[in-house]
Amino acid sequence: MSRWDGIDEFVATAEAESFSRAARRLGLSTSGVSRAVATLEERLQTRLLYRTTRRVSLTDAGRAFLARARRLIAERDEALASVGEDDGDPRGLLRMTCSTAYGERFVVPAVNRFMLSHPKLALEIDLDDAVRDIVSEGFDLAIRFGRLTDSRLIAKRLASRTRRLCAAPSYLTRAGAPRSIADLAAHTCILGAADTWPFRDGEREIAFKPQGRWRCNSGQAVLDAALLGLGVCQLPNFYVDAAISDGRLVPLLEANRPEDEGVWAVYPHLRLLPAKVRLLVEHLEEALSGQG
C-alpha cells in the first residue's frame, strides 16, 4: 500500500462535500473513493470525515489534515511536472475557469489555438459567472476582472475592459438623454448581475444603484433589451462597441465612464509554476492584449 493512497480521494471529497462529486472529479467510482478514505482513516487511526445521507463534512482532525494534504499534493504535482516537462512541452490536465461571456468570446478561442500546439495537454474549462475558489476546488488557473484581494493567488494582468452606459435611439426619443449621473434616477434602467453601476466624477468613484423593471444575469440578454429600447444599460464594452459604432446604441455620460478594469490571470502560489500554466498565461497575454 502506497503512503499516498487515499490522500487525493480525501481532499477531493472534503472539497466537494460528497463522495459522488469527488468520484466524478477524479474519474473513479463512488465506492472506490469511499473505501480509499476509510482505509486512510484506518491507517491514521483518526476519523477525518463525518458522513450523513445528504453530505460529508470535516471533523476537527480532518480540517487540520486537509491543509497539510493540499500542500503535499501541490508539492508532489510540482515535482512531477518539473520532471515531465523538461522537454518544454506541457502535459497532463489543466483545469481553468472564467466568466461565461468573456470566456466564450475571447478566452476559449485563444486556449483552443494553444491546444493545437500542445498535443500532450488535456484541458478542462469551467465557464461560470460565480467567483470560484480555485485553491479549494483544484483549478490551475482563473481569469478574473477588477480588483483582486485573495492573498493566496498570484495575478498577472492580461488585458483591460471598461463599462459603457448606453441606450437605443428609440428610448432616448421617448425619455431624453441623462446629462448627469443623478439624472439616471429618473430613467428606466436595464439591470444585469451587478447591483451598482460604477462611474467617475473627476477623481471620485461613484457607485450608482440603478432601478428598473427588467433584470437578467446575462450580458447578452441585457444587450438585447437595450437594443429594443427598454431602457438604459451599462455593460462591458465588448458587448456594446459594435452597436455603438453602427448607431444602434448611443453612448451616454462618457465623461463619467469608470476607469478601465484589469483582466487578470490568477493562479495559486507555487514554488515552481508548472509549464502548462506558465505557457498558457504567456499565450493569453499575447492573444488578449487589445481585446475588451
Results as ranks from 00 to 15, higher is better:
Trp4Pro: 01
Asp5Gly: 05
Asp5Cys: 03
Asp5Ala: 13
Phe10Gln: 02
Ala12Gln: 08
Ser18Cys: 05
Ser18Tyr: 05
Arg24Ala: 11
Leu26Gln: 03
Leu28Ala: 13
Ser29Asn: 11
Ser31Tyr: 07
Ala36Gln: 13
Val37Met: 03
Ala38Gly: 09
Ala38Ser: 15
Glu41Lys: 06
Arg43Thr: 10
Leu44Trp: 14
Thr46Gln: 12
Thr46Tyr: 00
Leu48His: 13
Leu48Trp: 05
Leu49Lys: 05
Leu49Thr: 01
Leu49Trp: 08
Tyr50Ala: 03
Arg51Pro: 00
Arg54Ser: 15
Leu58Lys: 09
Leu58Met: 06
Asp60Gln: 13
Gly62His: 06
Ala64Pro: 01
Phe65Pro: 00
Ala69Gly: 11
Ala74Met: 09
Ala74Trp: 01
Val83Ser: 05
Gly84Thr: 03
Glu85Ala: 06
Glu85Phe: 03
Leu93Thr: 05
Leu93Glu: 06
Leu94Lys: 06
Met96Glu: 02
Thr97Leu: 09
Thr100Glu: 14
Arg105Asn: 10
Arg105Tyr: 06
Phe106His: 15
Pro109Asn: 13
Ala110Glu: 04
Val111Leu: 07
Val111Cys: 08
Leu116Val: 12
Leu116Pro: 00
Leu116Ile: 11
Ser117Gln: 08
Leu121Val: 14
Ala122Pro: 00
Asp128Tyr: 04
Leu141Ala: 12
Leu141Asp: 06
Arg144Gly: 04
Arg147Tyr: 10
Leu148Asn: 14
Leu148Arg: 11
Leu153Val: 10
Leu153His: 04
Leu158Ala: 10
Ser160Leu: 02
Arg163His: 15
Pro169Tyr: 01
Ala175Tyr: 07
Gly176Lys: 02
Arg179Phe: 00
Leu184Cys: 00
His187Cys: 11
Ala194Lys: 03
Thr196Asn: 04
Thr196Cys: 11
Trp197Glu: 06
Pro198Glu: 11
Pro198Asp: 04
Phe199His: 10
Arg200His: 04
Asp201Phe: 01
Pro210Ala: 05
Trp214Gly: 02
Trp214Val: 09
Ala221Gln: 13
Leu223His: 10
Leu227Asp: 03
Leu228His: 13
Leu235Asn: 05
Tyr239His: 12
Asp241Asn: 15
Asp246Ala: 00
Pro258Met: 09
Ala265Ser: 07
Val266Pro: 07
Tyr267Ala: 07
Pro268Cys: 01
His269Gln: 15
Arg271His: 07
Arg271Tyr: 00
Leu279Pro: 02
Leu279Tyr: 14
Leu284Cys: 04
Ala287Arg: 13
Ala287Lys: 12
Ser289His: 10
Gln291Lys: 15
Gly292Glu: 12
